[in-house]
């Protein structure tokens, strides 16, 4: 084992293919701007984990704190525990998988562009303001172990104008905005869109996929007839 001074500089070096950070205890900015390779984080990293992640894979065996995967562009961040607030803010591409719960403001202003499509899967429940301003990409909340309960908080998807939020529940999300449309996901969509992502999610955490796909899903999308442009009158 080596002890290094500037960990992030080391992590970003392309020749280091696999790195393990042991006994992580609240250190911030771990894996910030990483472009390739694999980073295992043992313990609990601090805020802004894997921010600006630009490729490669970051595995965390504990919980993550606030602002993980902030402005992420590519790669995979997999968190075995739960994530704090403002997860995947402004994320544009890559995958963020959280096996546990996510705090407030998860997936706010996630985007998609050409081959980049941001995907956020939360195994447990998500707090309020999930997917606000969503501009593209996919958010999936599975609510594992929370069957029959609300799996999102208040203001789910407020202000979103593109992308889709999928929830594994039959329940209508709390105080859903009238500018959003809720619909049930049919078998075809489940098979073609949700299955591949959820299978990947299950295999990353080695959990049975069947459980993740059990029951019906609902989808939330922006009502395209109520766009922002209609708000204005040019002087």
């Amino acid at each position: 084992m080596r002890i290094i001074d500037n960990g992030n500089e080391e992590i970003r070096r392309p020749e280091d293919e696999e790195i393990t950070v042991k006994r992580c205890l609240g250190e911030r900015y771990v894996g910030c701007g990483m472009k390739n390779g694999t980073l295992h984080v043992e313990g609990i990293p601090g805020n802004a984990l894997a921010s600006y992640l630009d490729g490669g894979t970051v595995y965390v065996d504990g919980n993550a704190q606030d602002a993980a995967a902030d402005t992420m562009n590519a790669g995979l961040l997999a968190i075995k525990g739960s994530a704090g607030d403002a997860l995947a803010y402004g994320m544009r591409g890559g995958r963020v998988y959280v096996l546990g719960d996510a705090g407030y403001r998860a997936g706010v202003h996630m985007k998609a562009y050409e081959d980049k499509k941001s995907i956020l899967v939360i195994g447990g429940r998500a707090g309020s303001f999930l997917g606000e301003y969503l501009a593209g990409g996919i958010i999936i909340v599975l609510g594992l172990g929370n069957e029959g309960r609300d799996i999102t908080g208040y203001f789910c998807g407020n202000g979103m104008y593109a992308g889709t939020i999928y929830l594994r529940t039959e329940k209508q999300p709390l105080n859903l905005s009238d500018k959003l449309i809720k619909r049930n996901v049919d078998e075809n969509e489940k098979e073609n869109i949700l299955c591949p992502i959820i299978k990947d999610f299950a295999s990353v955490f080695s959990i049975p996929v069947e459980r993740c796909l059990e029951g019906g899903f609902i989808a939330i999308e922006a009502d395209k007839s109520k766009t922002y442009s209609q708000l204005y009158a040019a002087v």
């Binding site: 562009y113 050409e114 501009a135 593209g136 202000g159 104008y161």
Partner: peptide, 9 residues
Amino acid sequence: MVPEGLDAI
């Protein structure tokens, strides 16, 4: 990095 024709908010 926003798709053509989509608003950027």
